[in-house]
Nucleic acid binder design. Structure first.
Lengths: 223, 223
DNA sequence: TTATTTTTTTAGACAAGTCTAAATATTTTT
DNA sequence: AAAAATATTTAGACTTGTCTAAAAAAATAA
């Protein structure tokens, strides 16, 4: 159907759209694809011919509905595979990305629907990102970043914004993972760092840079 | 490491070796790869430079130990994925081949070792073919083809030699699958077809052409 | 052992995707 | 609004893997 490369371009454009950018510039896309601007120009011309995106020279590109649906499917596959790797094959959440980057391109509708069923129709992947559903809908999470929290808040870790191995390893070192409980002890105005209590046990300080990349929600009072 | 295409060439050469051919000719390999002889010549030259096989112009090629180990690893991955698809994701044995052809190229040692463990370290795939072990050893099965059977034999189906969807569907239609019990009622000399009883219930006749492609072993008397 | 057929290789071309370097647009600064 | 800086595109080249058509080698037949 579509090549690995085409799917990767579309997926990256979708991510930039989801990040709030309407029109994607060549340079931004080149950065996101770890390639050169000239390569991007070549490729988006081809994708435009295939009606996967709209492209105006020197202006940038926007996914069409067709392109969006391909990209969303790829994202769905990526996140289902990440869930499989962590839940079924005992990978840690910082090991799954590269492998899922490969698995997301396997072509088989049955494979994905059976995998979805096997995993129990999960709604979020191990990083807390929503898994697009078959109809293309992507849940907008009720999560917010930890830097928005207030003193005394009781929170639960739901995901991260920075998916680099370095960052995930850093969190692992402190024992922070999906489902960890955080109590905000104090917010330090001078550097916006946060003092907190992890799982009612360990107490430590996280820098604003770290805190901006941790997604949380309020602990639900399951009465 | 090695490209999809390189892995596919190596895997096909290995299969031909396992089929009993010492030196693989260009035309035979082209047939097996569904490509043209000129493409094969190009590729085996490249593989020879990489020390994956030995090649003598006009004479054919033979895998080196290095090439063999790459090929065996690919075959191991293929058969583990087929096992996963059938055992875990409820695919039928005639649906798995194409998908496994894709999955076998995913690069991740951890993925394969975890998958192997998750599946319980299987020794044979759903078609009855042995799964190469980590050390590269491939069990030589004690199975034989049904056309070697004698009248009165009590047999159990262990695999097939013909892996085409058509053939597997044909067997499914009769209800023949891995583990089916067969009692040989009569061998018809004139066309070498066999009358048999399936699972002590259904009685029917299979042509020699079909019978030659079914692997069986004697029913073990688990006292 | 020469002639014919078959197999294999070479030569040259093509498609996908990438790159560097140069040219052209666009945006920002002055 | 012109000059400078930045962003984008074009031109031409390279790699991987494929193909067709023609040439060369090997096997087979006469």
């Amino acid at each position: 159907m579509y090549s690995f490369t085409e799917e990767n371009y579309l997926k990256n454009i979708l991510k930039l759209h989801l990040g709030g950018t309407q029109v994607i510039s060549t340079n931004v896309l080149a950065e996101s694809m770890h390639t050169k601007a000239s390569s991007v120009t070549d490729m988006i011309k081809k994708l435009a011919v295939k009606k996967l995106l709209k492209y105006e020279p020197y202006r940038g590109c926007v996914l069409t509905n067709l392109g969006k649906s391909v990209a969303v499917t790829t994202l769905r596959k990526h996140r289902l595979w990440e869930t499989f790797l962590v839940n079924t094959l005992s990978f840690s959440w910082d090991e799954v990305h590269e492998v899922a980057e490969q698995l997301e391109h396997i072509q088989s509708d049955k494979l994905i629907s059976q995998l979805d069923a096997f995993l129990g129709f999960p709604t979020h992947d191990p990083h807390g990102d929503p898994i697009p559903q078959l109809d293309g809908k992507i849940a907008t999470s009720a999560f917010f970043t930890l830097d928005k929290a207030k003193s005394q808040n009781q929170l639960i870790v739901c995901g991260v914004l920075n998916h680099t191995t370095d960052f995930l390893k850093y969190l692992s070192k402190y024992g922070i993972q999906i489902g960890s409980h955080l109590s905000i002890l104090q917010i330090n105005a001078f550097d916006r760092s946060i003092d907190l209590l992890l799982n009612e046990k360990q107490q430590f300080n996280l820098s604003n840079e770290v805190v901006k990349n941790i997604l949380v929600q309020f602990i639900k009072q399951v009465a």
